[in-house]
Amino acid sequence: MTGFQKKTKRFGSRDPLPWLAPALLVLAAFYAVPVLDVVRLAFSDATLFRPPSSYSLNSFVDVLTSSVLPDVLITTLVFTGLSVIALQCVGLTIALLLVRGERRHLPGMASFRTLVLAAWVVPGIANGLIWQMLFDEAPYGTLNSLLGSVGLGPIAWLSDPTMAMLSAVIANVWQGTAFSMIVFYAARKGVDEALYEVASVDGANGWDKFWAITVPQLRLAIAANSILVAVQTLNTFDSILALTGGGPGRATEVLALFTFNTVFYNLDLSGGSVLALVLFALGLGFATLVFGWLRRDST
C-alpha cells in the first residue's frame, strides 16, 4: 500500500463527517425536520386552522385514552398481520414459480413477471376503486355474478364487517405482491444452485429442499421483506379509503385512515400528530423485533 493510500484511508476512517455531511443534511431537511415538527405538534393544541398556542400532554391523554383507539389498533393489527402473511406467501410462491419456469425455459415467464408488476404501479386510490367494482354486491356485481354462474354466493364482500376486512386485505395483497415477489426473486437467484444439486443427489424431494435450503437461504430476505411490507401496510389508507371508506362502521378503519380522519374531519392536527407517532412507534417496534430475532438467530 502506498503512503497516499494509507493517508486517504486514515482520513476517511477517522473523520467521516465531511463525507457524510451532505447526506446527513439532506436527510435532516427532508426527514428529521418534518418528524420533529410532528413531535412538536403532538404536544401542542394546534388544529388544522389554528397554530399552536400552548404545549402540554393533553393531546396524548385524549388520544391514548380514547375508547375508539383499541378497536382501531385491533383492526390495524389484523389488517397488517393478514396482509404481511399473505404478501410473503403469495410473493414467495410467485417468485419460486418464476425461477422454476425460467430454469425450464418455459415461454411467457417475462410476460408473467410483467403482469404481476403491473398491479404494483396502480395508485392506491385506483386499486380501491377497481376492487370496489369487482366486489360490488349488486345483483350484477362482477364477482358475485361469476360465483352465481357456478351456483355459489352471493357474498357480502363489503357490507359484512368480517368480509369487508378480508376484501381490504385481498385488495392490498393484489397490489403489494409484486414487491414481495421482486425481493424473493432476487434473493432466490442468489442461492447457489449447487446446494440443490447436492440435495438431489442425497435424495431430497422438493418439499425437503424448500424447508432445508430455500427458507434458510432466504431468511434475511424474509426478514427484510417482513419489515418493508409491514411498514408499507401500516401506512396504507388510500386504497381502503376508496374501497370501504373504513366501513361498514369502523370495520376497516386502520390507524393510518383514522389519523387522516382525525386531521380532516376533526380538524385536530395535534391529535393526528399523536396518532402519527403511534404509527411510527408501531413500525419501529416491529422492525426492532424482527432485527432482534435475526441477531439472536445468527448468534
Binding site: 357490507s159 364487517p161 361498514p248
Partner: peptide, 14 residues
C-alpha cells in the same frame, strides 16, 4: 363522520 360510522355499525348488526 360519526353518523356514517353509526349507520354502518347498526345496519351491519355490529
Amino acid at each position: 363522520n360519526q353518523i356514517q360510522i353509526l349507520l354502518g355499525d347498526v345496519l351491519s348488526g355490529s
